[in-house]
């Protein structure tokens, strides 16, 4: 059943990734001017030009060109970066691990800390704590990530000198970026966990468990948590893309290498082969992340499996 769901969900990715790749492919053509000029560095010779025309099949129609391009992408031939003068594939391979580490850690941080905070606030149920949580959630969902990053740098790196201001040397340089990206996620996960636990507590089976004489701790960990986990997984599945989006911003502020900073720098320099490759990789990451989230959700909830297949 879960395999069938996964398969169906994978099939759904085909039209999605096709449309996204068409949009990204079209970037160079929608730009004002000749696409070849957008792909060539200034001062290239006529032979360079001819070679590029041949490689991208620019003398043929747009549909053929798309398939040539997407074929190159599949083989990992992203072309040559205009400004950085290196194969784009190298740049991507160099930067991708940094983004994945940051995104993965931020995801881990926001899910574990968020669930812990949510559980505490559901169990304690103190009005002051509730108000604090609500304020925290509001801040977490409204404060712009890059500004939070700057404030953290100002406080922890400049004033206290605990962490490096920027760069990616050692684990200390990961602390502030992970905190920044995780902040919004923690607040969201905490809220969802809290509501889910409170809802689950009202179910009849909980009363029965209490009547049977189980300790509150056992009920919470063995019976309530699995029940409450479902909406949490749902929200986490939705968040994966947003965490990657957050990584784009935060990398740039902390001067960390990564797909996000590569993309933003390339956008500023109009280095379109790099822009296309970065956008494609990020889009792919978002789609795969969402896929994993959906499958995790479906493996926990038969209702979702049945609805989609």
């Amino acid at each position: 059943m879960i395999l069938r769901y996964t398969f169906m969900r994978l099939l759904m990715l085909i039209p999605v990734s096709f449309s996204i790749s068409v949009v990204i492919f079209m970037i160079v053509y929608l730009l004002p001017g000749d696409p070849i000029d957008n792909l060539l560095r200034v001062g290239s010779s006529a032979e360079d030009r001819a070679e590029l025309v041949a490689r991208y099949g620019l003398d043929r129609n747009l549909i053929v060109q798309y398939f040539v391009w997407i074929g190159n992408m599949f083989r990992g031939e992203f072309g040559e970066a205009i400004v950085l003068r290196r194969p784009v594939a190298d740049l991507v391979a160099q930067n991708l691990p940094y983004s994945l580490t940051l995104g993965g850690l931020a995801f881990l941080f926001s899910s574990t800390v968020g669930m812990a905070l949510g559980t505490i606030s559901a169990v304690v149920r103190h009005p002051v704590l509730d108000r604090f949580m609500r304020g925290f959630i509001l801040l977490g969902s409204t404060v712009p990530g890059f500004w939070l990053a700057l404030l953290l740098i100002l406080f922890f790196s400049v004033n206290l000198g605990w962490f490096p201001v920027s760069g990616a040397g050692g684990w200390t340089s990961l602390v502030l970026p992970v905190l920044t990206i995780g902040f919004g996620g923690v607040a969201l996960v905490a809220r969802v966990t809290r509501v889910a636990l409170l809802d689950a507590q009202r179910e009849d089976f909980v009363t029965l468990l209490h009547a049977k004489g189980l300790s509150s701790g056992t009920i919470l960990l063995r019976h309530l948590m699995p029940h409450a986990l479902l909406p949490v997984v749902t929200i986490l599945a939705l968040r994966i893309g947003w965490i990657l989006g957050g990584a784009v911003t935060v990398e740039f502020v902390f001067g960390r290498p990564g797909l996000g900073s590569l993309l933003i720098r390339a956008l500023g320099q109009r280095d379109y082969p790099v822009v296309q490759a970065c956008l494609l990789m990020l889009a792919l990451a978002v789609m795969l992340g969402t896929l994993i989230g959906d499958v995790a959700q479906a493996s926990m909830d038969p209702r979702i499996r049945e609805k989609k297949t």
Binding site: I24, M26, G245, V248, G268, L282, V286
Partner: peptide, 21 residues
């Protein structure tokens, strides 16, 4: 639904890539 799962900043960046800053 296609754009739904994408973070807003990514959609915005794709668009900025097309018409420039």
């Amino acid at each position: 639904d296609l754009t739904w799962s994408f973070p807003d900043i990514l959609i915005a960046l794709i668009f900025v890539a097309i018409i420039g800053p």
